[in-house]
Design a protein around this nucleic acid. Structure first.
Length: 334
DNA sequence: TAATTATGACGAC
DNA sequence: TCGTCCTAATTAC
């Protein structure tokens, strides 16, 4: 899935293109007809992300809660106001094929960001008529002939303003809530570094980890302990900390625990700015370009099982942990 | 055309 | 620990 960084980026797109506008809501697929009817015609007032969950606020104390799950995605189309960091270093969506799916093509206009995620060639502000698929990463689509476009595939919800449409497909959660219900969901989640930047959040995370017998590799994936980390960031954070994934939380040195929190905050910010799960540090410009272009060059251990560790040469191991694939270096993370 | 895979999360045992 | 749900893209045959 889209880990925490993507959800924050999608929320930005809603802030930029939907908040303040009256929204038409529908369910082309039909499975969310009732919820859509409840939202239809209301003005969107707010867009929030906490961990992997997004909450869109509407007039009349209605909130749409969306969780993309493993493969959910939002497709935006129309005259889209682009954030400077969006739709640039990413692939371009190609022509739509018979089934209505997007065929990826190389993007000749790809822009490479510097390490700070700056220097985009795209201006902020000016809307651009295009398509943009936002999931774990973003792909820009082929030119848009009609607006709004014909819904393609299983579109659970379509949100529509005068100029932009947003189609949701494949979510694991999509429901209308009242404010108290939103509060309940958020209260259950662990801290998100972008929502809770203070020391208190770090302390809360540390306290939570340090009292549990559960392996740290599972705790990082537990959204009640820390919000927004998924399988890629889990593996990479543990490697960067040279931390054995099996160590029970309460036996992990407190310095490591606090390092994990600060490193997560750092990687999350990089992810939000670049749109990529860029988890390698201190790359020279050449290596950085390669890493941005190729996901295979972007990680220390994720999806590198059987390949030599970039630090020590030991073969990267793969095992199941928490019903997910865990990649780690048995030597560096001994 | 079918099988496989995916960056989740939940509930039943 | 297992099964289940959500969907699309890719790979295998």
């Amino acid at each position: 899935m889209p880990e925490g960084h993507s959800v924050h980026r999608i929320t930005r797109q809603f802030e930029r293109n939907f908040v303040g506008h009256v929204v038409r809501a529908s369910s082309p697929q039909g499975r969310f007809a009732q919820g859509a009817a409840e939202l239809d015609g209301r003005r969107m007032t707010d867009a929030r992300a906490v961990g992997k969950q997004m909450f869109l606020g509407f007039e009349g104390d209605r909130w749409l809660r969306v969780h993309l799950g493993m493969y959910g995605a939002w497709d935006f189309a129309g005259d889209i106001r682009m954030d400077a960091t969006i739709a640039s270093a990413n692939g371009r969506m190609g022509q739509t094929n018979q089934q209505g799916t997007f065929l990826e093509q190389p993007n000749p206009d790809a822009v490479v960001f510097d390490a700070a995620g700056e220097n985009s060639l795209h201006s902020i502000g000016a809307p651009r008529r295009t398509r943009l698929r936002m999931s774990e990463s973003e792909k820009e689509g082929n030119e848009l002939a009609d607006f709004p476009p014909e819904p393609v595939g299983q579109v659970r919800v379509r949100l529509l303003t005068e100029t932009v449409s947003a189609d949701l497909r494949g979510p694991t959660a999509c429901e209308v809530l009242d404010p108290a219900q939103v509060e309940r969901v958020v209260a259950k989640l662990g801290p998100d570094p972008l929502i809770d930047p203070g020391q208190a959040a770090e302390d809360r995370f540390a306290a939570s980890v340090l009292k549990k017998p559960t392996p740290i590799g599972l705790l990082l994936m537990d959204q009640n302990v820390v919000a927004g980390i998924g399988n890629v960031y889990r593996a990479e954070l543990l490697f960067r900390a040279r931390q054995n994934p099996h160590t029970p939380g309460r036996l992990v040195p407190e310095a490591h625990v606090r390092h994990l929190w600060r490193d997560w905050a750092k990687l999350l910010r990089i992810g939000v700015e670049t749109g990529q799960m860029m988890t390698m540090d201190d790359l020279d410009p050449e290596a950085y370009r390669a890493a941005m272009a190729n996901r295979a060059d972007r990680h220390w251990v994720y999806k590198r099982e059987g390949l030599p560790c970039r630090v020590c040469g030991t073969n990267i191991a793969l095992e199941e942990m928490g019903a997910r694939k865990l990649y780690w270096c048995p030597y560096c993370q001994a």
